[in-house]
């Protein structure tokens, strides 16, 4: 039976307004990053001047590089740990400490960042760890693995469990069954988890501010200190570049997940 759209005029209007609200500010920001004028509000014609300025700003470039390295390494560790956690929660049935485990995984999702940041800093100080790349990476891993766990767990939960049972029936032990059947099926969720972790890390200001040390600022920390001083066209250019990077990551990841899911459908032999 064909479904008729039940869309009323009110529905269309609220959708259109909502999306405009979400996108217009970003669009405006991107457009103004190409503004030749120093005054952010006066249009002086198209120009790449502020991108130039950014690429000559050594401190900014270093911060961007630091952010990128932190994002890649923390997202990778977080994806590994988060996937393991999701498997334990969705396939482990009952085990001792399960409640505490799931509690620790869900809480950071909404925990105010100031609390997470402060508590991690106090730990690092107590351990007398040198603060910089690794402390920020660890902090971001702790936060983002929870997001990965949730994304992967919800995919695992919606998976037909008789697939795993079929694999075992055909002679796989549980671990083999998981690796050969379940893992390929949840691969898109794992990729999405990595992406989420990557952008969350790239995005984070508060936790990084607490856990980093002198001389190793991340990009958000630098942007923040500039923004506090007022609007600068160079910031528009940096923001546009970050948006572009994230857009590329999204496109690549969605292509990858599409590829892996279409391979899955073409029934790869075990």
């Amino acid at each position: 039976m064909r479904k008729v759209s039940r869309l009323s005029r009110f529905n269309v209007a609220s959708l259109a307004l909502g999306l405009a609200f979400l996108y217009l500010p970003i669009l405006i920001l991107v457009i103004y990053s190409f503004n030749a004028s120093r005054l952010v509000t006066v249009w002086g014609g198209w120009s790449l001047r502020w991108y130039h300025e950014f690429f000559n700003d050594r401190a900014m470039i270093e911060a961007a590089w630091m952010s990128f390295r932190v994002a890649v390494s923390s997202a990778t560790i977080a994806t590994l740990l988060g996937t393991l956690a999701a498997v334990a929660l969705s396939r482990g049935e009952r085990f001792r400490g399960r409640t505490l485990f799931s509690g620790m995984l869900y809480a950071p999702l909404v925990m105010p960042e100031v609390i997470t940041g402060l508590s991690l800093l106090l730990l690092f100080v107590a351990l007398n760890a040198e603060r910089g790349f690794w402390t920020v990476t660890i902090a971001h891993t702790t936060l983002t693995m929870c997001f990965v766990a949730v994304v992967v767990q919800s995919r695992l939960g919606s998976l037909d469990r008789s697939l795993e049972e079929a694999a075992m029936d055909l002679g796989c032990d549980p671990v083999r069954a998981f690796l050969s059947v379940t893992l390929p099926l949840i691969a898109p969720a794992i990729v999405a988890g990595w992406m989420l972790a990557f952008t969350l890390s790239l995005d984070d200001l508060v936790i990084a501010s607490f856990t980093t040390g002198p001389g190793s600022a991340t990009l958000p920390i630098r942007i923040y200190s500039e923004v506090r001083l007022g609007v600068k066209p160079e910031i528009n250019a940096i923001c546009t570049l970050v948006i572009a990077l994230i857009a590329v990551v999204i496109v690549i990841a969605s292509l990858a997940s599409k590829l892996s899911s279409s391979q899955g459908e073409s029934a790869a032999p075990l």
Partner: peptide, 10 residues
């Protein structure tokens, strides 16, 4: 997905 800080800055 586009940075939190960027959205505020916008």
């Amino acid at each position: 997905w586009t940075s939190f800080l960027i959205r505020i800055y916008a």
